Amino acid sequence: MAELAIENLTKRFGAVVAVDAVSIHVADGEFVTLLGPSGCGKSTTLAAVAGLDRPDGGRIRVGGTVYFDGRSGAFLPPEARNCGLVFQSYALWPHMTVFDNVVFPLTLRKVPAAERKRRVAEVLALVEMEAYADRYPHQLSGGQQQRVALARTLVYRPEILLLDEPLSNLDAKLRDRARTWLAELRTRLGLTTIYVTHDQIEALSLSDRIVVMNAGRIAQIGTPQEIYERPADPFVADFIGTTNFLPGRVAEAAGEDALIELGDGQRVRVRASPPRGPGTRVILAYRPEQIRIAAEGAAPDGAGSVVTARVVSRAYVGGRWQVALDLGGGPLRLETARPPAGDRLRLWLPAEGGILFQGSTDVSLV
């Protein structure tokens, strides 16, 4: 295992800057996910580490080995980098058995036969595929093929593991099971890993840290909890989980206490430092799980504000209702066990839960 250091990495495709001065440090044994929408630069960053793309600038180092240095011109070819790479497409040889697919990297490296057999048995047991050694890829499910592709990568003991959306070809239920299995495996391996995905659930459940990327740049780096609970900007808040954005302005501000006036005149008190003083246009963000329905005449526990929203639509999604509301001119989403009665709903917004972003009512999101 080894640490990975990416410094001011830049990659252009013609006039398009795909990766713009990206710097990431991955500690020895850490699992870091590059997360973002299509075209944000996450796969290009991974390809640069693997040596599949030559960057235009910056530096990549793994342990004591420099993979790329834009200043000196150093560029280590892919075959000289001890990286394990698993693609979105598993790329298994269809005419080879599971054993033959997995042993192939060791054969190329001229590892002795007895050692090859021992290592293949070891990794197939690790990915729980030892009973399928004599089968061909077409005889395996998508999840089983994914495990074989991972075993083929692990068998030559790479310094770092690079995973490029390895679960994206699986259906929803199989993907959920594979995610659980991969989480258990990463705990057992403790291998320095870069994982690329656009799936927020994968990122939140698997990562030690998440790197959220947008338009070739890093929007935020942090633990899953930090990214979810304290997003750096509206883009991160919208991309990670579901977020309600309510346009308004600062009516009053004192230290960590702010009173926000919504578009319809209703006011919400939050404990969050406003970007600026009274009159500043802001966006107030709440996660759906933070909002509660306020019973008529009852005062909710804790500090917060009670507001009234207009019910736009309601949909039953199995065990719960998704309710679309309009609050102060801003759309709001809420989940509840029972459908709301009538076309108005009283809501309690906690003072501690709101996040303030400076900006107009026109927020550019994903």
Results as ranks from 00 to 15, higher is better:
307 V>R: 01
135 R>F: 01
127 V>Q: 07
346 R>G: 11
363 V>Y: 02
223 T>G: 02
307 V>G: 04
190 G>Q: 01
322 Q>A: 14
343 D>T: 14
261 E>W: 02
148 V>Q: 03
270 V>T: 02
217 R>V: 06
122 E>V: 07
363 V>P: 05
259 L>M: 08
318 G>F: 09
346 R>N: 13
210 I>K: 01
313 S>E: 09
242 T>M: 05
194 I>E: 00
92 L>A: 02
216 G>Q: 03
45 T>V: 13
162 L>R: 01
246 L>F: 06
295 A>Q: 11
228 Y>H: 10
349 L>S: 12
186 R>S: 13
243 T>F: 05
242 T>Y: 01
63 G>H: 01
238 D>C: 10
318 G>Y: 06
132 Y>S: 15
77 P>G: 02
6 I>Q: 02
175 R>N: 01
50 A>Q: 03
323 V>C: 08
264 D>L: 08
173 K>E: 04
4 L>S: 07
114 A>D: 11
277 G>L: 11
158 P>W: 04
52 L>K: 07
166 P>G: 05
223 T>H: 03
57 G>Q: 03
42 K>Q: 03
101 N>A: 08
32 V>D: 01
15 A>E: 07
163 L>I: 08
116 R>C: 12
288 P>D: 04
351 A>L: 10
24 I>T: 06
355 I>Y: 02
148 V>T: 07
131 A>Q: 13
80 A>Q: 15
245 F>T: 11
363 V>E: 07
329 G>V: 12
342 G>A: 10
248 G>W: 01
338 R>C: 10
65 T>E: 12
164 D>T: 06
139 Q>S: 10
155 V>K: 04
239 F>S: 03
102 V>G: 09
143 G>K: 02
352 E>T: 12
126 L>Y: 00
220 Q>G: 03
199 D>F: 14
216 G>F: 00
251 A>S: 11
